[in-house]
Simulated assay, not measured.
Amino acid sequence: MDSIKKTDNFVFQTYARQGKAFVKGEGTSLWDEDGKKYIDFLAGIAVCSLGHCHPKITQAINRQASTLIHVSNLFYTMPQADLASKLCEKSFADRVFFANSGAEANEAAIKLARRYFQKKGDKNRFKIITMEQSFHGRTMATLSATGQDKIKEGFYPLLEGFSYVPFNDIDALRNEIDESVCAIMLEPVQGEGGIIPADPDYLKAVRELCNDKGILLIFDEIQCGMGRCGTFFAHELYKVTPDIMTLAKALGNGLPIGAMLATEDAAIGFDFGSHATTFGGTPLATAAALEVVNIISRETFLEQVRQKGQYFKDKLVKLKEKHSRVVGIRGKGLLLGLEIGVGKDKNATFFVGELMEKGFIINGIQDKILRFAPPLIIEEKEIDRLISALDSLL
Rank of each mutant, 00 (worst) to 15 (best):
A172Y: 00
I257F: 00
I195K: 02
D314R: 10
D178I: 15
F232P: 06
K318S: 12
E153Y: 06
P283M: 02
R125W: 02
E354C: 08
M245Q: 10
V165E: 04
Q307S: 05
K332I: 00
Q80Y: 03
E357F: 10
E104K: 09
Q59F: 10
C182W: 13
G281S: 04
K120H: 08
F270K: 11
C224G: 00
V317C: 07
Q64M: 13
A234M: 06
G19L: 07
A248Y: 02
R114V: 15
I222F: 00
S324E: 14
Y311S: 03
G121T: 00
H136E: 13
G193N: 07
S91T: 15
A84M: 07
A289W: 00
E187H: 02
K213W: 05
I387P: 04
R95K: 13
I39P: 04
Q223H: 14
A288M: 06
L186A: 11
T67R: 09
Q366N: 12
C53R: 13
S49C: 14
N9D: 14
L186G: 08
G194M: 08
L394C: 09
G161C: 06
E303M: 14
I61K: 10
A276G: 07
K20Q: 10
F219Q: 12
H235C: 11
Q304H: 05
G364Y: 04
I39L: 12
F10L: 11
P256R: 01
Y238I: 11
I268A: 03
S49N: 12
V293A: 06
A276K: 12
E354S: 10
P188W: 11
S388P: 00
P55W: 08
I129L: 03
A289H: 01
L203S: 07
E187P: 04
T300Y: 01
M78W: 04
P200E: 11
E187R: 01
G254K: 00
R174C: 05
